[in-house]
């Protein structure tokens, strides 16, 4: 199983596809993916166009959420390029899904940090979710709202396996314009979302393996299930807390 080896969380380029990356990119992977360097006082204007009334992105208030939404169309184009870029550098659907998961993971770590800061930062009695059910509900409602602007449609517990939970989205915004060709029907681009969920759960010390699966029905052809398989340690701890 791929997960037996250390998950390449913090490097986008997985070890398995290093050879293909090497000949495709002349630069090293770390420079390809590095974030724009934080602007120095002198260089700020040249990197981000900051007008008098428009502070640049590094100086914006973290708690200000109104008007901070990004354009759905712009995101759709970006995500489409991400999928195409990733697809060129992997071998097979599983590898592609794992890579998207890794990319989502990097977002998830930031989502949980920002969400906790916004919700608890100004609170006099900051708290942290420690119960499994409230953590899952938080993912279902707050994380989805923070990332997609709407709560997920359902959350279910697997009947057969007590360590499996499912979050269901009837129409995932990131997949709205994507038509997966028939020969790749296994692929779910929501692996990206699964990565976000995995990072959030990890960040709250609920380690789990999260995967995405297409579960279409006649009414919602894009319906997607995010399957959360919790690690045993989480369930053992839940027992102790009861």
């Amino acid at each position: 199983m791929a997960y037996a080896q250390p998950h390449p969380r913090l490097s986008v380029v997985s070890n398995s596809s290093l050879s293909s990356v090497d000949h495709l990119s002349p630069t090293t992977s770390s420079t390809r993916f590095s974030l724009p360097s934080a602007p120095s006082l002198h260089g700020a204007a040249s990197i981000v166009k900051a007008g008098p009334n428009r502070p640049n992105i590094y100086e914006r208030n973290l708690n200000k959420t109104r008007g901070a939404e990004v354009s759905g169309a712009a995101f759709a184009f970006l995500f489409s390029e991400i999928v195409q870029y990733t697809q060129k550098r992997v071998s097979g659907i599983n590898d592609l899904e794992r890579q998207l998961n890794t990319l989502g993971y990097r977002i998830g770590t930031r989502v949980i940090e920002l969400m906790v800061w916004r919700a608890e930062g100004s609170s006099k009695t900051p708290k942290r979710e420690i119960k499994l059910i409230s953590v899952l509900m938080m993912v279902h409602t707050q994380v989805w709202k923070a990332v997609f602007g709407k709560p997920a449609d359902a959350i279910e517990r697997s009947v057969e396996n007590p360590d499996e939970y499912m979050i269901i989205d009837n129409d995932p915004p990131i997949e709205r314009h994507i038509s997966v060709p028939r020969d790749m029907s296994q692929l779910s681009c929501s692996s990206f979302t699964a990565g976000i969920v995995e990072a959030v759960l990890d960040g709250l010390s609920f380690p789990a393996r999260v995967t995405a699966h297409n579960t279409p029905n006649p009414q919602f052809p894009n319906r997607t299930t995010i399957l959360i398989k919790l690690e045993k340690s989480v369930l053992d701890r839940e027992e102790l807390l009861k």
Partner: peptide, 21 residues
């Protein structure tokens, strides 16, 4: 623009095989 150009599995200038379209 929505169902073809934003679909990562479409190659520009090639025949359109997109279920969404």
């Amino acid at each position: 623009s929505d169902a073809v150009m934003k679909n990562p599995f479409h190659t520009p200038e090639m025949p359109i095989r997109s279920e969404g379209f």
